[in-house]
Design a protein around this nucleic acid. Structure first.
Lengths: 338, 338
DNA sequence: TCTATTGATTAGAGCGCTCTAATCTTGTAG
DNA sequence: CTACAAGATTAGAGCGCTCTAATCAATAGA
C-alpha cells in the first residue's frame, strides 16, 4: 500500500528528485537520455505522482468542487456528465457533494468542498443564500448553474427559460391552439422564467394566460389537471398545456387520460427539459430541450478561464433551448397520432 | 483568495502552530482558555483547515474515489446518492469520475482517482478487466458495486439478481401465468444472474423458459416484443414478460400496446430496478426493487472497515431485492386495471 | 586561451499541515 | 521544600511534491 515516491524514482534512476519532477511534468530542457531513464524507473516502480502533494507544492489545484442539489434528478446527472467530460479534457478532477435542497446541508457541503482549496466551485441549482455564495466567491471562482444571482463576480450558466416556454407557446399557437394553460413550477429553479415566457408569448398573441399553480413533479401535474378539470366547464377547458417540466407533463397526461381525454387528440401537452423520460417511445413527449451537456461544458470553461486569469469580468451564459416535437402535441381539432 | 493558514491563526492567538493543530482536531488536553482563544482567532480570520495538507501530513485520506460507468443511468445516480450520504456521515469526501463503459476510459479514470491516494475506491458496474482491478487493490481497498469478480481481496455489493427475477416469476405464477418470457439483458451488468433466476424459477414450476435476447434499453425492449410477436402464433404468445430492467419493460409495453395488446389485461409485464420511471403513475410498473441507497451505504461501510483495519477478509454483500407490485401485472385472463 | 552563453541538473527551501519527542507548568505527596 | 507525575504546550522534522536560484558542463565567440 505504501506507494513509491519521487525520491524512490530518483534513486533508482540515479538522478535528483528535481529532475524526476521535471520529467513528470514533461518540462523541456531535459536530455532524452535522462528522460527515458527516469520514465523507465518510474514505470518499473509503478510510480504515479501524488496529486495532493503536487497541488500543495505548486499552490495550484486541479480539483473542481461540484455541489449538486439532487443527483436523482436526471437533469443534474446529465449536467454532471457534461462537467466531468469537460473537466477531464482540461485535466481537472471533480469532487462532488450533494446538498439535498437544504440551505444548511448545502452550506456544509460547500464548506467541505472549499476545504480542498479547489480551483473553482460549481453549484448546480443551489438553494443557499447569497451571503454563502459571496463567501465562496472570496475564496475561489464560482459558477452557478440553473440559478441566477445578483452576487458580484459569479459566472452563471442558465437556459433561457423565457425563450423555452415561448417556443412551446409558439408551437401550440401554430397548431391552432388558443386556450393554452401553464402548469407553473412555483419556486422551483427556472420556473419564474418559464412562467414569464409563457405569459409574454400569450399576450403577444392576444391570448389570455391561464396559470395553474403546480410543482415540478408528476403528482403535482396530476393535481393541477384535476383542478383545471374542476374549474372549467367541459367546453372551456384548455386545449393545450405548457407544463413546468417533463415530470409535471407526464403527471398531467396521466390525469387527462384518466378523465377520458386523449393526448394529443383532445389536449396537447408540452414538457420541459427533454429528460430521458420524454424520449421513451411510450411517452414520446413534445418538450423543450436544454443543452445539458453543453451547460456542463460551459460551466467548466468559465471556471478555467478564471483560473487562468483570462477573464475577470463575470459572464452570464443564457443558453438557447430548442423544441423537440414528439407525439403529445397535435393540430387543434384533428385526430392525429404519430 | 490567499486563505489564512494555521500559522496566521497561531500568531493571532499568540500560541504555537502545534496548539492550533490540536484545537482544530479537537484533541483533549488543551486548556479551555487556549481553545477558545484559538477558535476565536480562527473564526475572525475565516480560517478553515486545508484538507489536502492535512491529508499529506497525516498520511491518511478522507477521500473516496468513485468511478461510475454512467450517471445518466438513474440507478447509478441513486447509488451515488447513497455513497454521498454515507461518506458524508463518516467524514469522507467523494471524488468522482465517469468511465463511460469503455475499458480504456475506465482505466484512465481509475488512474486519476488513485493519483489522489484515496482511502479507498468504489467502482460502480465497471467493465474493466480483472488485472486493472488487481492493480488498484494493490494501492488501496476496492469495492465493486453491481459487478462480481474473482479478484482476491475486493469487497462487492450486489443485489441478488437471481432472487429478484425469482420474485418476478413467482408473482406471475401466483397470478396464474404459465407462458412467461424473459427479455434478457445480454452482457449488461446483472443480466446473467437475472436470467439464471428466471430459468430456475421456471423449471421449479415445471414451466418452459422462453428467453428473448435483448438489452437494457427501451428500444431493445420494443424490438424484443416484435420478435416475440413474429415468432409466436397469436394463441401461443406469452401472457407475461419478465423484462431485463425498467427501460426494457417500458419499451416492451409500448410495442405491446401498439400491437393492440393491453397491459396488463392481455400481457403482464414486470420490470427490474424500480427506477423513478417505474413509479410514475403514467407508467406504474410492477418491478423489482434494488435497495440502491442501501447499496451505496454498504459500499462505503465496507471501505471504511478496511481503512480502519477492522477487517481484512473480503466481504460479498448480496442484497435482497423486493417486488413492488403496481399496475402492469394482473391475474391471467381477468380484465383488471389498478 | 579565456570568458560569455546557453542548456541541463541539482540543492534546498517551502506548501500547510501532523506527529513525536522534548519542554514547561502545576499540583501533590513525601 | 524537594521530587515527580500528569497535563499543557511547543520545537522541529517531515509528508511528497514544486520552484527558485545556484551549479555544472559544453559550446561558441573573441
Amino acid at each position: 500500500m505504501a506507494r513509491p515516491t519521487m525520491e524512490d524514482v530518483a534513486a533508482k534512476a540515479g538522478v535528483s528528485r528535481a529532475l524526476v519532477s521535471l520529467v513528470m511534468r514533461n518540462a523541456p530542457n531535459v536530455s532524452d537520455e535522462r528522460r527515458t531513464r527516469v520514465l523507465c524507473a518510474a514505470h518499473d516502480l509503478g510510480y504515479e505522482p501524488h496529486a495532493m502533494a503536487r497541488s500543495l507544492a505548486s499552490r495550484t489545484s486541479t480539483v473542481l468542487g461540484v455541489m449538486v442539489s439532487d443527483l436523482r434528478n436526471a437533469f443534474f446527472a446529465d449536467v454532471v456528465e457534461g462537467l466531468d467530460a469537460a473537466a477531464e479534457a482540461a485535466g481537472f478532477h471533480l469532487i462532488l457533494n450533494t446538498g439535498g435542497r437544504s440551505p444548511s446541508r448545502e452550506r456544509a457541503a460547500l464548506k467541505n468542498l472549499l476545504s480542498f482549496r479547489p480551483a473553482g466551485v460549481i453549484l448546480l441549482s443551489p438553494v443557499l443564500q447569497a451571503p454563502a455564495i459571496e463567501d465562496a466567491v472570496a475564496q475561489c471562482p464560482v459558477v452557478l448553474v440553473s440559478r441566477t444571482s445578483r452576487v458580484r463576480d459569479v459566472d452563471t450558466v442558465n437556459d433561457d427559460g423565457e425563450a423555452g416556454s415561448t417556443l412551446a407557446v409558439e408551437h401550440l399557437v401554430s397548431l391552432g391552439h388558443r386556450r393554452i394553460a401553464h402548469l407553473d413550477g412555483g419556486v422551483a429553479a427556472g420556473a419564474a422564467a418559464r412562467r414569464r415566457g409563457y405569459q409574454r408569448a400569450m399576450r403577444r398573441h392576444l391570448l389570455h394566460p391561464i396559470i395553474v399553480h403546480s410543482e415540478h413533479t408528476d403528482t403535482a401535474g396530476e393535481k393541477a389537471v384535476h383542478e383545471l378539470l374542476g374549474d372549467h366547464p367541459r367546453g372551456g377547458l384548455p386545449t393545450a398545456l405548457v407544463a413546468g417540466n417533463d415530470f409535471n407533463a407526464v403527471g398531467a397526461i396521466s390525469a387527462l387520460e384518466e378523465a377520458g381525454l386523449r393526448v394529443p387528440e383532445d389536449v396537447s401537452v408540452v414538457g420541459y427539459d427533454n429528460t430521458s423520460l420524454a424520449a421513451l417511445r411510450h411517452i414520446s413527449l413534445t418538450t423543450v430541450d436544454q443543452p445539458r451537456t453543453e451547460m456542463g461544458r460551459l460551466a467548466v470553461e468559465a471556471l478555467i478561464e478564471r483560473v487562468r486569469g483570462e477573464r475577470t469580468e463575470p459572464v452570464r451564459h443564457l443558453l438557447h433551448p430548442s423544441l423537440v416535437v414528439r407525439s403529445t402535441t397535435a393540430t387543434l381539432g384533428e385526430r392525429v397520432r404519430e
